[in-house]
Lab assay of single mutants.
Amino acid sequence: MAEAPPRRLGLGPPPGDAPRAELVALTAVQSEQGEAGGGGSPRRLGLLGSPLPPGAPLPGPGSGSGSACGQRSSAAHKRYRRLQNWVYNVLERPRGWAFVYHVFIFLLVFSCLVLSVLSTIQEHQELANECLLILEFVMIVVFGLEYIVRVWSAGCCCRYRGWQGRFRFARKPFCVIDFIVFVASVAVIAAGTQGNIFATSALRSMRFLQILRMVRMDRRGGTWKLLGSVVYAHSKELITAWYIGFLVLIFASFLVYLAEKDANSDFSSYADSLWWGTITLTTIGYGDKTPHTWLGRVLAAGFALLGISFFALPAGILGSGFALKVQEQHRQKHFEKRRMPAANLIQAAWRLYSTDMSRAYLTATWYYYDSILPSFRELALLFEHVQRARNGGLRPLEVRRAPVPDGAPSRYPPVATCHRPGSTSFCPGESSRMGIKDRIRMGSSQRRTGPSKQHLAPPTMPTSPSSEQVGEATSPTKVQKSWSFNDRTRFRASLRLKPRTSAEDAPSEEVA
């Protein structure tokens, strides 16, 4: 009796068929016929556990003709996506030579605008209408194809895939403007070719909807975003200037109206006075309405000098805001240009540092100066060695804690006790272990408590650290204090090793 083939788990290929790579489910599931010992083939499952149809090819690079078809379809799909992405970037994010197409579109729109203006002049109306009709045909074809291509290429973005995504893309403001202008152009052409009475009025009214094509030149909205950011950044200043200017306008108009309503027919109503105030304070000055009385002229002159300053403030605020924003954008561009080279330089330096163990090129690091100058660790070890030599091999803490019996001779020589300023008595072995921070803190506390006492003391002649007598400086308080830590004499004296002298005989010792 033939044995059933062993159940295979995992992703390994079956024996005897090495080139074939078959994806098997996580659990080997066989058909009921196979479990019962029949000759049925096992049921194939996909990666998600769903059964595959009987005629479906197995996924994998070596699955025969199905694999070749899959490779061809995958390559075609990649080319399709690449083309779609390229078209989308050309239309929505132009760079380099892609601006040539947008310059061509701008020339078409500008020519249409010029011809629309010439069509309103009686001398050039006939020729402009003929040229404009031909140009409209060209623009309908160009913009119609462009609109379709834009909607198709938007599928390269995830949020615009599918018919719902394309509809979302078509609802964008600039796409809506394109659609309105396209419909208006078709209506103008249809009305112009019919030759009816309505054609002339339709051409004159709907052609100027094509002015909206100038708005579509900035599809990404960079200028509007820049203007919005400047207004938002200086909103408080703008609101303040406009508010005060509006108050000056209504008060000036009302007072001039009261002064001129009886003697001047131009100011017969408050609305006429508001019109005069707006034209005057905005420095336009049509001259259609002028005050005639001396009181009205004085009020107009005073409020004009006051109001023009507030009406001119928004222009200066926006101008300075634009300058600052442009400078910030230039700085951001320079930062973006330098970020990648800086990151590459840091990575290269780290690779060199991690692979080169000698690091002989590091001549400006802490390790280099640590090898030249005595390190703080060596100074600490030197302090501890000196203290243990004086205390008979014991550390200062051990000397303080060691009990001394009554009447027993002390094995240590008597030492002079010292007192730290602002604290109780402490171990004499710690007097010379006072660090730089303690010395600086002690000097600052003395300056806070009594700076007036220092200038009363007789001035001391500054001497070099080499000429100081070591026996005289029994305490860190003898170090000359200065008002600034930048004094080199104080810094050098604080680094010197001060020996400890006994109370009975204080021989001067120098520590090399």
Rank of each mutant, 00 (worst) to 15 (best):
M139K: 02
F104C: 10
F137L: 13
R81H: 08
L118M: 12
A259T: 03
K337T: 01
D288Y: 00
L249H: 00
P94S: 03
D272A: 03
R43G: 08
Q84R: 10
R216G: 11
S50I: 11
Q125L: 07
Q329E: 13
G12S: 08
T290R: 02
A343V: 11
E92D: 05
N85K: 10
L113V: 06
A98D: 12
D262Y: 00
T293P: 01
I244T: 02
L145S: 13
I148V: 12
F322S: 00
D17A: 14
M214K: 00
G39D: 05
R43H: 15
Q329H: 01
G287C: 00
S63T: 10
R72L: 13
L9R: 03
Q210E: 07
Q125K: 05
L299Q: 02
G37R: 11
K337Q: 01
P14S: 15
L45R: 12
H102P: 05
G319A: 03
G38A: 09
N89I: 15
F310S: 03
F99L: 10
S205R: 02
L52P: 06
V117G: 12
D288G: 00
G316R: 00
A4D: 08
A202G: 04
V188L: 04
V326I: 15
N89T: 15
S268A: 08
P5A: 05
D266V: 00
L345R: 06
S116T: 10
A263P: 00
E130V: 06
H292D: 06
R213C: 05
S265C: 02
G64C: 12
S31T: 04
F322I: 00
S253Y: 00
R207S: 03
K236E: 13
E237K: 01
L45I: 10
I211T: 04
C156R: 07
N196D: 07
W294S: 14
A36V: 15
F310L: 06
T282K: 00
F179Y: 01
L145W: 11
I180M: 07
I284F: 00
S119C: 02
P341A: 03
G287S: 00
L11R: 09
I239L: 04
F99V: 09
G70D: 08
A25G: 14
V176G: 03
R297G: 01
V176D: 00
I134V: 04
V186L: 07
F198I: 03
V24E: 05
H124L: 08
V188F: 05
F303S: 03
Y160F: 03
S235R: 03
R338L: 01
R339S: 02
L45H: 07
Y270C: 01
M217V: 04
Y160C: 00
G245W: 05
V109I: 15
G162V: 01
S67Y: 06
K337M: 00
F335I: 11
L227M: 02
I180L: 06
V90G: 15
S50R: 13
L313R: 01
S67T: 08
Q164L: 04
S269F: 00
A315S: 07
Y257S: 02
H292Y: 06
V142I: 11
R82L: 03
Y147D: 04
D288A: 01
T278P: 00
L299V: 04
G40C: 07
L318R: 00
V29G: 05
E146A: 00
P19L: 10
P6Q: 12
N89D: 15
F169I: 01
S74W: 12
F246I: 02
E3D: 07
G321R: 00
G144A: 12
Y101N: 00
Y232D: 03
I105K: 00
A28G: 04
V176A: 13
K337N: 00
Y286C: 01
V29M: 05
C158G: 08
G60W: 13
W163S: 02
R216C: 04
Q164K: 04
L274F: 01
L203Q: 04
G192A: 00
A263D: 04
N344Y: 02
Y88C: 02
E35G: 13
F182V: 03
R297K: 15
V87A: 12
Q332K: 07
E130G: 10
W242C: 15
S65P: 12
A190G: 07
C175Y: 08
G321D: 00
I105R: 00
T280S: 03
L226Q: 00
W152R: 01
W224R: 00
W152L: 02
P6S: 08
F311C: 00
D266H: 03
G64V: 08
T280I: 01
E260Q: 01
S205G: 12
Q33K: 13
I197S: 06
R339M: 14
F182I: 07
A301P: 01
F267C: 00
I105V: 12
E35D: 12
Y257D: 01
R95L: 02
I140S: 12
L26F: 06
G277V: 01
I239S: 04
Q30P: 04
C112Y: 06
R168P: 00
S65T: 11
S50N: 06
K261N: 06
L83V: 10
L281V: 01
A4V: 11
E123G: 07
P53L: 12
G228V: 13
E22A: 05
G319S: 15
S74P: 13
W224L: 09
P57H: 15
I140V: 08
Y88F: 08
L47F: 03
V149G: 03
L52Q: 09
Q347L: 13
L132H: 12
R297W: 00
Q329R: 13
Q329K: 01
R219S: 05
C158F: 15
R150P: 01
G46S: 06
E3G: 06
A36S: 14
I279V: 01
V183M: 04
F251V: 01
I284N: 01
L135M: 10
F335S: 01
G285A: 00
K225E: 10
E237A: 00
P291S: 01
V149D: 00
L135W: 09
R168L: 15
F143Y: 09
W224C: 02
V326D: 10
L107F: 04
A304G: 07
S185W: 02
G287R: 01
L249P: 00
V248A: 04
I197M: 05
A259D: 00
L115P: 06
A36P: 06
N85H: 15
Q125R: 11
N129S: 01
V103L: 03
L249R: 01
T200A: 06
A25E: 08
D272Y: 00
Q327P: 03
I250L: 05
G37V: 11
L133H: 06
L107W: 03
S31C: 12
Y80N: 03
V138A: 06
A75P: 14
A28D: 03
Q164H: 05
Y232H: 11
H77P: 07
L203R: 02
V100F: 00
G302C: 13
V29E: 13
L274R: 00
L108V: 07
Q332E: 09
P59R: 08
I134T: 12
A98P: 06
G62C: 12
P5T: 07
L295P: 03
A301D: 01
P6A: 12
R161Q: 14
P314L: 01
P94L: 00
T293R: 00
F311Y: 04
A18S: 09
M217K: 01
D266E: 03
I346L: 11
I189N: 03
L132P: 03
R81L: 15
A263G: 04
S269T: 04
F182S: 11
I239V: 07
R7L: 13
G221R: 01
R81S: 14
E328K: 07
G34S: 07
R338W: 00
V103A: 07
L11V: 05
T240P: 03
P61R: 06
A304T: 02
V231F: 04
V100A: 10
T200S: 08
I239N: 02
R159L: 15
G46D: 04
K225Q: 08
I211F: 03
I284M: 00
F254I: 02
E130D: 06
N89K: 13
G144V: 08
P51T: 03
G228A: 13
A191P: 05
P57T: 09
V103F: 05
P173A: 04
G39V: 03
E146V: 00
F267V: 01
A300G: 14
L45V: 10
C69W: 05
E260G: 01
H102Y: 15
L26H: 15
Y101F: 07
F311I: 02
H292Q: 08
F303L: 02
A25V: 03
P54Q: 12
D178Y: 06
I121M: 13
R297T: 00
L306R: 01
G66R: 09
V138M: 10
W242R: 01
S235I: 02
Q84K: 02
P59T: 13
P13T: 04
Q332R: 09
L47V: 07
G62R: 08
A301G: 06
L9V: 08
F110I: 10
I317M: 01
A312G: 04
S41A: 08
K325R: 00
P13R: 03
F174C: 04
N264S: 02
S65L: 09
E32Q: 05
G55A: 13
V114G: 06
A170D: 01
F310I: 14
Y243H: 07
H292L: 06
C158Y: 15
L47P: 05
G165A: 02
A18T: 04
T240A: 03
D266Y: 00
S268T: 04
I140N: 03
V298I: 15
M139R: 08
